[in-house]
Amino acid sequence: MTGQSEFHAALLQADQPVPSGLTDGQGRPAGRRFAVYRNNVAVSLTEALETGFPAIRALLGEENFRAIAGLYLRESPPTSPVLSLYGAGFPEFLANHPPLAHLGYLPDVAQLELALRQSYHAADSTPIDPATFQRLTEDNLSKARLRLAPALRLVRSPWPVVDLWRYATRPGSKHPSATPQDALILRPAFDPEPHELPAHGASFLAALAKGLPVAQAIEAAGDDHDLAATLTLLLQGGGITAIDLE
C-alpha cells in the first residue's frame, strides 16, 4: 500500500526513493513518472512565490530567486490552499539565510511585498470626505479616534524600503537613497501603493491603529513629526474610513 505520508515525503525530498507500489500502468515501476508530480509541486510553488515577491525576484535575479524559493518551499510548504497567503514566513527565511546576510534589506522589502498583497485582498471600504476632517474643531480632533481602512498597512524599516521596492519593480525609478523609510500602504481603489511616511509618522499611525485618540497619537509621534504631511497622505489615499467622536 502506498500511503499519502510516503508520497508526501518523496514529493518534497528528491533524495527520497520513489514510493513502492507505483507503476506505469503496464506493471513496470513508475520510475521517473513520479518526477512529474515532484516537478509540478516545485514549479507551481516557485511560481506562487515569484508572483508574490516580484521585487525580491528582481533584486536577486531569476536564477538566484528560484534556488532560494526551492529551499523555502521545501522547508515551509503552504499550510493553506489560498496561495495569496503563501510566503508569510519568507521575509524571516531570507533574514536567516546565511548567503544573503550581505543583503540585509531583503527581508524588509519582502515584508513590504507581503503587506501589498494583504492590502490587495483586504475588505473594501469607503473613505471619509477630507472636508469632514477639516471641519472638526481642534478640541474635537484631539479627542477623535480615527478608523483606518482595512487595506491600510504599515511597514517600518531601517532601510530605504520604499525606494528599494520602486527601484526593483519600476524601471527608471531613482536609485535608493541611504536613509531609512517607513512605508504606508494605501489602496484608494483596487491598487495598493506604498508611500514614504514623514519621520515619526509611523509612531502616529501605530497609535491610531491601536485605537488611541488623535491627541495621544500626536504625543506618541513627538514634536519632530510633520502631522500635516502625514494627515494629508492619509486623507488623499483614502486611509481614514470614519471619525469616532465620544
Binding site: T2, Q4, H8, V41
Partner: peptide
C-alpha cells in the same frame, strides 16, 4: 485527487489508488 497532507498544501492534484 488529493493535495493536502499533514497540513501541507502541495498545490498539485495528486493521484489515488
Amino acid at each position: 485527487a488529493w493535495s493536502t497532507h499533514d497540513s501541507h498544501f502541495l498545490n498539485d492534484l495528486l493521484p489515488l489508488p
